[in-house]
Amino acid sequence: MGFSEGLRESAFPASRLSTIDICALGLKKHHIAALLEVDVTQARALFRRYRAQNGESLSFTAWVAHCAAAAAGEFPQIAAYRSGRRKIAVSGTIDVAVAAEKRAGGHDVPLPFVIRNCGGKSVGEIHREVRQAQEERADEKTVVLGSGGLRRAAALFYKMPAFLRRFIWKTFLLRPGTAVRTMGSVMVTSLGMCGDCDGWFIPIGIHPLVLAIGSITKKPGVVDDRIAVREYLKLTALVDHDVIDGAPAARYMTRFAALLQSGDGL
């Protein structure tokens, strides 16, 4: 049997066009990549206690989103957009998009859901919103979960040629008000739950701040000058260098890591 005889073809999911467009635009952004390894031993113990007391698990992604937003509230420029060509727009609230894998049009596709004012909500409130998004039905015309209007416009958008779609994306990103209302200013995607891979995932995105949650591994660490088994989270962050310099970005990462290490909000 020839190679071509073993091929099976299926319809290309329209929703993947947005992923392709975002990758094409994301590769052109001036992102700084940071590979973090954070000791989350204390936080993991609090997660286990919560499950024992309540009989259900708390969303790890929801908690990371909480910590990311809390730190961004102290360093808001980390989530700023360029406004036109000559201005920077900083939002008064931090809206975080989380990705939920949905079955749409016969394919598994990642779809974002925006948590509004994430920094002003408890981990429990964010957890419930994430679970609600995961349970929402989606089809191949869905762009953002919880946004029926975008779904209705998606059919026309997907029929446009690539150069026109990406021109619209570029114009869209230079209008911070529209961008924040539609997709938030921080993106959190969790890849560690999809496999036990001890390493970092380097995402591609168009948000000012993109966070990719990797795996959690156990290994020796030093605590109070003693070696002990600790749990470490692999985490990747992309920061838009157009709107923030390296030093304040590093201060944000330090604060974010500290909140994760302390189990903030749990």
Rank of each mutant, 00 (worst) to 15 (best):
R8F: 09
F12W: 10
F12H: 05
P13N: 06
P13K: 09
A14L: 12
A14S: 14
A14F: 02
S15F: 07
S15E: 02
C23F: 15
A24H: 14
L27S: 13
L27P: 00
H30M: 13
H31T: 09
L35T: 08
D39S: 00
Q42L: 11
A43Y: 13
L46A: 07
R51T: 12
G55M: 06
G55R: 14
L58Q: 01
F60I: 07
F60D: 10
F60S: 02
T61E: 01
V64D: 00
H66C: 06
C67D: 00
C67S: 01
A68E: 09
A68T: 00
A72G: 00
E74Q: 14
Q77K: 11
A80I: 01
Y81S: 01
K87Y: 05
S91M: 11
S91K: 10
D95Q: 03
V96F: 06
A97N: 11
E101W: 14
A104Q: 10
G105D: 12
G106K: 04
H107L: 07
H107K: 09
V109K: 03
P110W: 11
P110I: 01
L111G: 05
P112K: 03
P112L: 08
F113I: 05
R116P: 04
N117M: 08
N117S: 15
C118R: 12
G120I: 06
G124Q: 15
I126N: 03
R128L: 09
V130G: 07
A133K: 06
Q134S: 13
Q134I: 02
E136N: 09
E136S: 13
R137M: 15
D139A: 01
E140T: 10
K141Y: 15
T142Q: 00
L145E: 04
L145G: 02
G148Q: 11
G148D: 10
G148H: 13
G149K: 13
R152I: 15
A154I: 04
A155V: 15
A155D: 13
L156R: 10
Y158E: 07
Y158K: 03
M160P: 08
A162T: 15
L164F: 08
R165F: 05
F167E: 11
F167L: 15
K170N: 09
L173F: 11
P176D: 03
G177S: 01
R181C: 00
R181L: 03
T182R: 12
T182L: 04
T182N: 04
T182C: 12
G184S: 00
S185E: 01
V186R: 04
V186Q: 02
M187D: 08
V188I: 05
C194N: 15
G199Q: 14
W200Y: 07
G205T: 12
I206V: 13
I206E: 04
H207A: 07
P208M: 02
I213M: 03
T217L: 13
P220H: 11
G221P: 04
D224V: 07
D225G: 00
D225H: 14
R226T: 14
A228H: 06
Y232N: 12
Y232P: 06
K234Y: 15
T236S: 15
A237G: 10
L238G: 04
V239F: 02
D240G: 07
H241I: 03
D245P: 09
G246Y: 05
F256V: 08
F256E: 02
A257C: 15
L259K: 02
L260A: 03
Q261S: 11
Q261I: 11
Q261T: 10
G265N: 03
G265P: 09
L266V: 04
L266D: 01
